[in-house]
Structure formats: structure tokens, C-alpha cells
Design a protein around this nucleic acid. Sequence first.
DNA 1: GCCAACGTTGGC
DNA 2: GCCAACGTTGGC
Length: 139
Amino acid sequence: MAYWLFKSEASTWSWEQQVAKGEAGEEWDGVRNYQARNMMRQMKLGDLGFFYLSQKDKKIVGIVKVCAEAHPDSTTDDPRWECVDIKAVAPLPRPVTLEMCKAEPRLADMVLVNNTRLSVQPVTEAEWALICEMGGYSG
DNA sequence: GCCAACGTTGGC
DNA sequence: GCCAACGTTGGC
């Protein structure tokens, strides 16, 4: 089981839109970055991820699950780009902001804190557990 | 709205 | 294959 973080801008794709897709989930399409794509290629069915809102909100608002492994991105004919499908699992009772992550010494090495521009990121098991705790989410 | 950081493109 | 120019992202 691996853990990930999916970054989205609320005006492009919000948590509410993700939740509205229900069990069927939705393609995490539109990624045009090799690093981010490579992360998605490594994802397995059932892997969990955080849903992070960039720009205005800058916080982790929910938990998502990978419900389809990497496949061609339907929004382009370019065979280089692939994506996974994810579905909403649960909202975080208390959203965890970027500020909180930066203020937490144990998250100093987190990709979210250090490489702000990567839109799909790996999360370690320790980081996952800590952020769930900070967010009041007990699984 | 600005700007730093980063990725990508294209000329040589 | 290098590197300058350019575009985009995202925090502030």
C-alpha cells in the first residue's frame, strides 16, 4: 500500500466535484508533467491519497482512493500522457493547511513543503499517519 | 498581481 | 547536447 497526494485548483476541479462522482470515481486527467505521470504509473488499485487544493485554499481537504491504474489520458491523443482514476473516500474532519505542514518539524521533508510545483506527489507512511492525525481522521 | 522556481522548447 | 528564452505553476 502506497500513499500519494493529488494537487488541484478548486476552480478547475473541486473536492465537491470529486465527491459527486461517487464510487465510479473520475480520471485524474490533464497532467502534462513527466514526474507526476511517473508517480501515477506506480500507483496500484486501492492506494490512498490526499486531495490538496492549491492557490486560494492551500490545504488538504480529503482522502481519495485509486480505483483504476494508469491508462491513457482521454483528454489528449498524445500517447505520452497517462492517468489514474480516483474516488473520494472521506473528507478530513479538520482540513490540514500548508501552513500547518510547514510548521510541523516532522513534515520538513515532505514533497508538498519542498517541491511546491509537483502536482502528483508521493507521501510516506509516517507523513500519512501524522496528517491523518492532524486532520482528525481515524480511517 | 508579482515573482521565484521549475520544466519545456528550439536554435545553434 | 548545451543553454537561453519562454511559459506555467503556485506561494506570498
